[in-house]
Amino acid sequence: MKDLHSEFYENLPLFREFTLVADPTQFSAVPDEWVVGVADIVDSTGEIARGRYKTVNTVGAAVISAMINAMNGKLFPYVFGGDGAGFAVPPSQVEAARDALAALRRWAEEEFSMPLRAAMVSMAEVRAAGRDVRVARYAPSTGVDYAMFSGGGLAWAEAEMKAGRNMVDQAEPGAQPNLTGLSCRWSNSTARHGQIVSLVVEPTASASEGDFADLVQSVLSMSEKLERAGHPVPENGPPMKWPPPGLDIDAHVSRNGRNMILQKTVLLFQNLLIAALFKLGKRLGQFEPDHYKKMVSGNADFRKFDDGLKMTLDCDASTLKRIEHMLEQARSRGKIRYGLHAQNEAMMTCIVPSATRDDHVHFVDGASGGYAQAAAAMRA
């Protein structure tokens, strides 16, 4: 028997102008029968201080990778937050989602000694608490689209999780989530126009939906004047070096219980072949390196809406000063909370179901703290 509203998300229209995230009419309410899930790394700020932000990003992206594989091709809304992720699924997928989160919690602790917490809660409970989850589909390219979230429901679910409610228990020792396609083999992209700025802006309780929409539109109008709207990844894709900087992390992700040294050796040879193909620009079967690199950049999620505006921009000093001034004025009026974190490079974590298709997903964040540090600055 088919779920009520099971095809809700895939039937939503796509929009291709990111500025439309400021328009509340673009968002549709997730059905009551659905369930939302959230996950994040415990003490991600401490992990960043210990120099483990690439690992933090990888574990955060693993939540989405495991969910994509658990859904078996079923489209569902999700969002990457740097040190975690949020999503919503129909009733028929709740048990698969819960199993994936349980395995992820065990895997993150055993593979990386990085505690991951996770929780799931019904939309009915979200709405009973006076919050909502509304989603829209933004397509940055012809290859992929990303979910945008509003309504405060994901933020509420995360706060409840941090208070110890609605938790998903760990799976048994040795549990392995299906992380097929997850990788981090690209090198970081260096800022070309100033600094890589990770920005998080959220409305306060005193801000109306219209107030916040107006502010978001103003910030986006300013960022749109940057080259390629501040896109931090070069148009022809990020650099690739050999050996890849994330080799140890990639080996932990892909080894699936196998010997680490053997898995690193396999990855070294794989990455050598890939680096050679990219350098020579030679086609191999249906794989076209030049086209793939352009799609990597085009598919990147450097801007998103997740109960607030999040962007990782290659930003010059004067534009950053104007954006900060605008945000500070709104903060002084009690309308927003915001945080930003500036660094020299952007990093990318990828989910690639197939290198011969255009639907590969690329999560962009600042390379030395990014969204997690911006969020910490906002809370402070």
Rank of each mutant, 00 (worst) to 15 (best):
G151S: 07
L182H: 02
H5K: 04
D132S: 06
G298K: 05
A85N: 05
Q286W: 05
R228E: 15
G285I: 10
M120V: 14
K225G: 13
P177M: 12
A62M: 10
N299H: 00
R357V: 15
A367M: 07
S368G: 06
S221L: 07
K225H: 11
A102P: 02
A205T: 13
H5L: 06
S368R: 08
R105L: 10
R322C: 11
N69D: 07
N72P: 00
S183F: 00
H291L: 14
D83I: 07
A251I: 15
R357C: 13
I274D: 10
A108M: 07
Y292R: 02
D314W: 00
R117S: 15
C184N: 04
A191D: 00
A100M: 03
G339R: 05
A128E: 12
R337C: 09
I64Y: 03
R255I: 15
F212S: 01
A251P: 14
I196Q: 04
L327N: 13
M222W: 08
M123L: 11
R16H: 11
E7M: 11
Y9S: 11
A163G: 01
L20D: 09
A139R: 02
D301C: 11
F212C: 02
A377N: 13
R337K: 08
A317R: 08
M148G: 14
A118L: 09
I48K: 02
V21K: 02
P24I: 09
I323F: 07
E288W: 04
K225Y: 09
M378F: 15
D358K: 02
A103V: 03
Q195T: 14
A377E: 13
G153N: 08
N259I: 13
K304D: 14
T190V: 05
S297H: 01
S122N: 09
M348I: 14
P115Q: 12
G86E: 02
S187A: 13
S141H: 04
T356K: 05
S332L: 07
G130A: 03
V197A: 06
N344Q: 12
A96M: 07
D23M: 07
I249A: 13
Q270L: 08
V79D: 04
Q26R: 11
N166G: 01
D132K: 00
L116D: 12
K162G: 03
G152M: 09
N299I: 00
Q26C: 09
G334K: 04
E209Y: 04
Y338R: 03
A367N: 10
E17H: 06
D301M: 10
A136F: 04
T312H: 02
A159K: 01
D316T: 02
H341E: 03
P238F: 05
R98M: 10
I249F: 09
G164K: 01
P239W: 09
